[in-house]
């Protein structure tokens, strides 16, 4: 166990090696969050509320999207797994008494913690000071938001790692990265919350795993889900988490045993 704690720590410390990236990161995140806020300001021009959602709700939603999606980098994970398998570098990991997917999770947790503290938090503070941000709907919702954030990170990691392993059979790492990118921008709720989706797409979108990346954490913060619903959807999220973990384990086993049987 101590090895994985050490990996997380090294993921965190490795990020320090690229100091300029911190500034580039903050700047990039600022632009992204500003863009989303600007879109909603334009959409809401002259209107106080659409479907009972105020502009202040939407600015908060845009900010929360930056909080949950700002730190974890699916592209980094897809590339890491995909390249390790395609180039055969994964052999190095098969030589060590370590589970590679858990190693990756630990490294990513460390790197995400770093980006969160040094890029996400400053960005959110700057934008929140400029445009204002609503507090969580209640103490319960605030607390559950933290739980949903953890769920968001884990589901995010699993989806990206699954796509990375698929690169072993399907196509280039790059094209899978693009595919996942478009799926995430549409189906996580990052660009448009599902309550603006026409039915039945709204219902469909809110039951697939990517919805737990942005939509549910933000909806919980804003109090769009009552207590029962919040707990229910947290449970659904856990179920997706278990399912995706099992899928990753299966695919990983297939890919690594194909390497060991057929050669890398």
């Amino acid at each position: 166990m101590s090895a994985y704690v050490a990996f997380a720590r090294s993921g965190f410390l490795t990020s320090f090696a690229y100091r300029n990236e911190v500034w580039a990161n903050i700047f990039g995140k600022l632009v992204q969050v500003f863009a989303r806020v600007a879109i909603w300001l334009a959409v809401y021009a002259g209107v106080t509320a659409v479907d009972g959602i105020s502009i202040s709700d939407m600015i908060t939603y845009a900010l929360l999207g930056g909080v949950v999606m700002g730190a974890t980098r699916y592209d980094r994970i897809v590339r890491h797994v995909g390249n390790a398998l395609k180039t055969g570098d994964v052999a190095v990991w098969l030589l060590k008494p370590v589970h590679y997917p858990l190693y990756l999770l630990a490294i990513e947790a460390g790197a995400s913690a770093y980006t969160f503290l040094l890029a996400v938090v400053p960005t959110i503070i700057i934008v929140a000071l400029l445009y204002g941000m609503q507090p969580p709907a209640s103490a319960f919702h605030g607390l559950m938001f933290v739980g949903f954030c953890a769920l968001s990170f884990l589901i995010h990691f699993l989806c990206a790692a699954i796509f990375g392993v698929l690169a072993f059979w399907l196509m280039t790492v790059f094209s899978l990265e693009w595919l996942l990118q478009s799926l995430i921008s549409l189906l996580s709720g990052l660009l448009i919350p599902f309550w603006f989706f026409p039915e039945p797409f709204g219902t469909m979108a809110s039951h697939q795993p990517l919805a737990w990346l942005v939509y549910y954490p933000s909806a919980v913060w804003l109090g769009r889900l009552d207590t029962i619903q919040t707990l229910l959807y947290f449970g659904f999220g856990l179920a997706w988490l278990g399912l995706l973990a099992a899928l990753l384990a299966l695919l990983w086993h297939r890919a690594s045993s194909r390497i060991t049987v057929q050669g890398g």
Binding site: A3, V5, S10, T14, A17, V92, P97
Partner: peptide, 21 residues
């Protein structure tokens, strides 16, 4: 094929190795 961590100082790679084993 390197087994050291590319971005870390050598001594940190060794320390990780200590934890792994």
């Amino acid at each position: 094929r390197s087994q050291l961590w590319w971005d870390l100082p050598v001594i940190d790679s060794f320390a990780l190795h200590q934890r792994i084993y």
